[in-house]
């Protein structure tokens, strides 16, 4: 735990320090640093399910920086459901020797510190990262951008639908290359490309800041209603 303590700079009172990301709210998005994250999970029940792998990449200066990709497996404490194995192809045997949740939290805290969280259907990532952080005495508290919501804003996904648009469908629909699908690092890279395309397209109407993208994400989010999520 000492490494985590050093990393998070927890004060003498032991009060969890927030991961900052608010500083960049009023910057044009190309001037801010963003961290695009994707998680593979044992299932979608926030109370019960856990992270089995995480992937992330930094967007800096309006560019997806390949050298910043992080990826790791996590040993879950509960059985992985057959349905989710069918999606991400990580079997219990693949996860047996993986490190515990603290290593994942450390990597994600590193990635997210000072950066804006971007994810596809971000309410899922936000909820699971938030819970994982809380278990390690950290708080996830920063602006969040949701590519599914941006797509709805642009009319690329039906508004008022009850399900999230698929990442692959959106990316290939606007001619973007797909990275390895249902692999946390691959999906994070695909999401990052999708984010660049969507934010650039929103710029055409009005130059976007982190705040305006966050607002769109909030307004167009399905997360509040906890709609079923189609992988």
């Amino acid at each position: 735990m000492s490494l985590l303590r050093r990393l998070t700079g927890r004060g003498p009172g032991g009060r969890p320090r927030a991961i900052p990301g608010w500083d960049s709210l009023d910057l044009p998005w190309r001037d801010a640093e963003l961290a695009v994250v994707d998680l593979e999970l044992t299932g979608l029940d926030l109370k019960r399910d856990e992270i089995v792998s995480y992937g992330g990449v930094v967007v800096r200066g309006g560019r997806v920086v390949a050298s910043t990709v992080v990826y790791g497996l996590v040993r879950p404490r509960i059985p992985v459901s057959a349905e989710s194995i069918a999606i991400h192809a990580l079997r219990p045997a693949d996860l047996e020797d993986a490190p515990g949740l603290d290593v994942c939290v450390e990597a994600l805290a590193d990635l997210l510190t000072g950066r804006v969280l971007v994810a596809h259907a971000a309410w899922v990532e936000r909820a699971f990262i938030g819970r994982a952080f809380a278990e390690c005495g950290l708080r996830l508290d920063g602006p969040v951008v949701d590519t599914a919501a941006l797509a709805r804003e642009l009319g690329l996904a039906p508004r008022g639908a009850e399900t999230e648009p698929s990442l692959e469908g959106l990316a290939s629909g606007i001619g973007l290359p797909l990275h390895t699908t249902h692999h946390a690092a691959g999906d994070a890279l695909t999401t990052a490309g999708l984010f660049l395309a969507l934010a650039s397209r929103l710029d055409r109407t009005e130059p976007q800041t982190v705040r305006s993208l966050t607002n769109v994400s909030h307004r167009q989010s399905l997360g509040a209603q906890r709609r079923p999520f189609p992988f």
């Binding site: 997806v64 390949a66 660049l196 650039s200 055409r204």
Partner: peptide, 11 residues
């Protein structure tokens, strides 16, 4: 080279 790629989108 693949590791050093930076992807950028231009409208």
């Amino acid at each position: 080279l693949a590791h050093a790629v930076e992807a950028e989108y231009f409208t």
